[in-house]
Structure formats: C-alpha cells, structure tokens
Amino acid sequence: MIKVNHLNKQFGDTPILRDVSTAFERGKTNLIIGSSGSGKTVFLKCLLGLYRPDSGQILYSDKPFSKMDNNERKELRQKIGMVFQGGALFDSMTVEENVMFPLRMFTDQTEQEMIHSVNEVLSRVNLNNANKKFPSEISGGMQKRVAIARAIVNNPRYLFCDEPNSGLDPKTAMVIDNLIQEITQEYDITTIINTHDMNSVMEIGQNIVFLQYGKVAWEGNANTIFNADKQEVIDFVYSSNLFKKIREIQRSK
C-alpha cells in the first residue's frame, strides 16, 4: 500500500501539486485520471522518487520515502516495476536482453535461469518469438508488452504505468488494460496507472483519483464515477463523443 499525505510540488512559482492526500491499495488497479496539465505525471514522478516533493509525505508500506537511506531506497526501487508512456526500452538491447536487464542487475541467477524467467514472463504477456528482435523492429503494442514484461520479471511489489495504452488501437489498449489487471491480482501488487483514457477507467478502475489543477478533486471507482457529485468529473467523463452519445441515448429512454 502507498499512502500520500499533504503532498506539494511547484516548479518556479507555478504550483503543480497542491496538498495531495490519497492512498493506493494493494491488489487493486489504482488509476490517476485528469485532463492534460492536471499534474498526473508530476504526481507519478514524485511517487517514484524522480521528483522531490516540496512538502508532504509518501509512505511505502507505512515507511516515509523521504526518511529512507540510500540502501533502503535502492531496495525499494528493486521492488518497483515501471511501464513508461513510450515503453522506454533500451534501443541497443534485444527484447530478451531488455526483459533480462533487471535480473542481470539485481539477481545472481545463471544465464539459463534468466532465460527461463524471461521466456516465462514473455509468454505471460502473450509475446512469443520476439526474443531476438530489437525494439525498433516490433510494433507499439508489442513494445508496451515488453515494457510490462520487464516491469514484472523481478516480481515487483509496486507497478507503475504512465499512460500504458496511449497510441494504441482500442482493441490492443483493452488487451493491455486486462493484462495489467490480471497481473495485479495474480501477483497481489499495488498498481498505479496514470491515464486519461475513459475506456481504461471503465475497464479497470477499481480505485480512481481525479486530479484537477494539482488537487485531488474526487475519489471513487468505475461504478461511482458516472454519478460523481463533482461537475468537473462529469465534464471529464463525458468529454468524449462516445460517452456523450451514450448519455443522450440513456436520457432519451
């Protein structure tokens, strides 16, 4: 579980995160949603320790991140898997080498054991026969799956995903969403997903945090979001033509 208490972050004079407090539960897919510029990416990077918050606390299993020493942080980071928006696969490495990378860095497994783990995790994300290909030789959807495989190969306790289905067609996006949800439940990990895709919200929104102007404007889940008491949330939900149409049909009935 990850808890966030009164988190603040600003760049120059511009406040990005303002008194953000929330909690992300284990074994659930936790979604951070909000329109562009709402502070989602900064929030995620603060959670990952890539940005240092100006004030407030982030607690990993009740331990404040800011009070961890270098060894504790290193240990924690080895329990974190991250799926970046663009995949962030290492260009100079093959698919197999990319997925093997965390094992090579942090375990003492033999080459055979590592290859076995890599094949296992690649088949888990339905990606066979791509081991020897370079990231530039595979599609965007496949790159995302490799990124997920790399993130989970070392059995992480926390999985972070930054817009995991951006740039993907709706069908592939749904496959990725379902895969993340299955992995979350199967490995009982805390998953945090940054998205503004309403299909993802509907599909895997077990816990949703809605950010607006750097503040938590609403919290709930996929079942409660359509009846949210905040106009901003309703506007966000019905910003797509598809959902507008559905609402019109529902109202006309």
Binding site: L48, G49, L50, R73, K74, E75, L76, R77, Q78, I80, M82, F84, Q85, G86, A88, L89, F90, D91, F101, P102, M105, F106, F160
Partner: peptide, 17 residues
C-alpha cells in the same frame, strides 16, 4: 541524449541504478 528523451534514463533511475 536520445536515452534522456525516450525516458530510458528515468527507467534506469526507477530501477535504483
């Protein structure tokens, strides 16, 4: 620089490297 732009450096940092 390409690694920075494509978040590969962030990926290394997140892993604790």
């Amino acid at each position: 620089g390409s690694m920075r732009v494509t978040e590969q450096i962030d990926a290394l940092e997140v892993m604790g490297i």
